[in-house]
Write a protein that binds this DNA or RNA. Structure first.
Lengths: 213, 213
DNA sequence: GTCTATAGATAGATAGAC
DNA sequence: GTCTATCTATCTATAGAC
């Protein structure tokens, strides 16, 4: 292992397992998101890192496992953002609104994540199904929704018997779609769902949720 | 050209340009939808038709053009369904509801279309952009929404100044998401967004729109 | 842990006879 | 319009030296 005291003998190369792994994951995330699973090239990923293709196989075992690792990390990021959610001090309506805003902003700021999820759906979510880590990861957002709905019903603010998973799906659907389908929607209808300058009310958020819901 | 009066000399083969083209498109649609653009194999598509790979290149020119033709036909189908929409006799609220129902049912019944659109988004909608046909195809659904909104505002039923494209995006988002993200959502949350038996209110429609909106 | 070189399989595309 | 055979490039994966 190379530390700051013991510089690498090959200049420009890294000799730090964790760092090499992280760099491979960074590049692989971009490549898979850009070209899809089959479109991504292990050679290209290797060429864009400071390490070699041999190391990708050494660390991850193969293309399939690399993609799974990319997915695991991407889901880890959004789950962490959800865990940061602090809506306990808000009234139920404001809490739901806040949750929607956070989802909206997160998806807009992480288009690569949206693309990876779309790609994984094309492949029937087989990598998620095979991943132990992703099976155990849960969903803080869903827990938060459950608590908000309970509180809203208890205080009489919410009357309809809305299901937490349904509500999560509704919020996700809109936030996901405007990023995932940005290109076809733009090409067909001449409006960029993400760019605020296009004049769409669906383009704006960042704390001021002004959708036509 | 082979007509009904002049049967094909090779039994089991087709000698009808239109029919051969249609059969290739059918198989290619399934293959592209199943495996993605790069995952689909021209050899496999050919093997599943009654013609050969040479004919695919003869009729379409290449894999890229074949995918474009698949997209053009898939969009043609939904645009035709939209044109069958007959909501002029309904009041504006019922008309919007009916439009949502038709979109909901169409997407549920055409998962291959949803997958093709997802795949096209991964590739930045470059095939749509390059297709003259898809540039001119328009959107009957959007025209219908515009008319409904005008009527609703005129009669005073609708007060909010909702934009037609925004409304179209909202309806599409939910209907699209439950099919496009069915697999990851199911794997992560243990609920099938499409299968009605899973107990979700998002699973039912077919004329009785009962979403938690 | 890292490198070069290469195996082994398969892809998209085409030649050319009929 | 249809067929068989094949070219050329490229991809994932690995062997083996250091």
């Amino acid at each position: 292992m190379t530390s700051v005291d013991e510089p690498a003998r090959s200049p420009g190369r890294i000799r730090d397992a964790a760092r090499t792994r992280a760099e491979i994951l960074d590049v692989a995330t971009r490549e898979f998101a850009r070209a899809g699973y089959d479109g991504a090239r292990v050679d290209d990923i290797a060429a864009r890192t400071r390490t070699t293709k041999r190391m990708i196989y050494y660390y991850f075992g193969g293309k399939e496992q690399l993609f799974t690792a990319v997915l695991e990390r991407a889901y880890g990021v959004i789950r962490e953002a959800e865990q940061q959610l602090d809506v306990e001090h808000l009234d139920p309506v404001a809490a739901i609104r806040r949750l929607a805003e956070v989802t909206f902003d997160h998806h807009e700021q992480h288009p690569d994540f949206i693309r990876l999820v779309s790609i994984e759906n094309i492949h029937g979510a087989e990598h998620i199904a095979a991943s132990e880590k992703l099976g155990r990861i849960g969903s803080p957002a869903l827990d938060v929704i459950r608590r908000i709905l309970d509180e809203g019903r208890r205080s009489g603010l919410f009357t309809a018997d809305v299901d937490a998973v349904d509500l999560h799906a509704m919020i996700s659907a809109f936030c996901f779609f405007r990023v995932s389908n940005r290109h076809t929607f733009g090409a067909l209808f001449g409006r960029d769902l993400v760019d605020p300058a296009s004049g769409s009310t669906t383009g704006r958020c960042s704390g001021t949720w002004s959708s036509p819901i």
